[in-house]
Design a binder for these strands. Sequence first.
DNA 1: GCGTGTGGTTTACTGTGTAATCTTATGGAT
DNA 2: ATCCATAAGATTACACAGTAAACCACACGC
Lengths: 222, 222
Amino acid sequence: MTDQEPPSRRLPLTKERILRAAVDLADRQGLGTLTMRRLGTELGVEAMSLYKHVANKDEILNGMVELVIGEIEIPEDDADWKEAMRRRAVSAREVLSRHSWAIGLLEAGASTGPTALRYMDAILGNLLSAGFSVENAAHAFWVLDCYVYGQVIQETSLPFTTSEEMTETAASTLEQAPMGEFPHLVAMYQHAPKSGYSVDTEFEFGLELILDGLERLPLDSP
Amino acid sequence: MTDQEPPSRRLPLTKERILRAAVDLADRQGLGTLTMRRLGTELGVEAMSLYKHVANKDEILNGMVELVIGEIEIPEDDADWKEAMRRRAVSAREVLSRHSWAIGLLEAGASTGPTALRYMDAILGNLLSAGFSVENAAHAFWVLDCYVYGQVIQETSLPFTTSEEMTETAASTLEQAPMGEFPHLVAMYQHAPKSGYSVDTEFEFGLELILDGLERLPLDSP
DNA sequence: GCGTGTGGTTTACTGTGTAATCTTATGGAT
DNA sequence: ATCCATAAGATTACACAGTAAACCACACGC
């Protein structure tokens, strides 16, 4: 090599640095472009060098999930459960749609690392000390997670983000296909521009619905 | 080739047959092993021959999603909305966890084919003719889909299925890690064997919670 | 000095999707 | 019957994936 850096400039490779670079790359270019070679060059290093710090690509993917989970806001034990769950759900949704590839990895069965455990423990703790029975705490946890995950999936599968893009998509969809067979869809698409549709509103609607439902559950110690 | 079949035995390759074989293979061996070559040999044909019926692998994946969506039970317009939505959610969950790879494809933005459109239209139709406003129908649709998708994700990411496997997992998890930091998780794992935990129960709990919540919405024409 | 380990590189192998090309069978029009 | 266009499938080849194995270079205690 002719263009050598002074070696002190090259900060040492670590698993930490690799994981952060991987998350970064996946955020910017998508998980599909996250390849060992590209990740290597991103870090100014050869692909195989990564394997000195990481067993294989799966370990990288798991580590990425842990990093992401670590970004989610965690409730205090003694916080008001409803507000705490709302904040956590909002935060989880925010984080997971910022790193929209993470859901796919979750599904693949990653994440039983310490960060994930701490995360789960904090949530359970809040619910339990709010007086939920163990069963009901588990139910609440489960249904909220379902909802957040599903929200993120639907969000990322939508071809639009803003309300304008949405009406635009609606318009173009209306034109092309043989829409005569789908009268209700047509009605909805035609209605869409009028109401200020947004995934945020959708999310809040369902979230409040679920939280209100959970509020009806009996508590152990009122 | 020495072992030629009488050519009449070899039924002709079609997109339909390819898609069915692909779904079958993904069900049996996982989406990861669905490769053009393997799919080819599964059909007794060379990999490249598939490209005479299909533009590329993505088209196969999209087609698979359509097939799966087609399996979901669709409500009649005039059916009682609550029962109809319950049945559809149950059916969707059933279908999607039978083909647990499908969620990942949904996320990738597949599915605006005719089957998916018909599916969406039927659901909207039921809600609208039950008296839901367009906004509320959209809300109901959205929250139910979120819930089902999330349920499937969580189910497939769990390392166990039956209640016995669950207590087993709980036990082994309790032993290995430094669980002192996670008292509430420990409490839950210890409680797990007593209560008959199952993902089915979890699903029903949240589903009824959401349906009851939706029932509180005002209807247009009572 | 001298092993010895640690962190990075080189090379190479297998498996992927698919472009480009070649082969063969089929079914009218003559 | 003959011819040949078209379609369905097979072959070959290429760029890129993950990673096993061997190799190198420098820091260190002795």
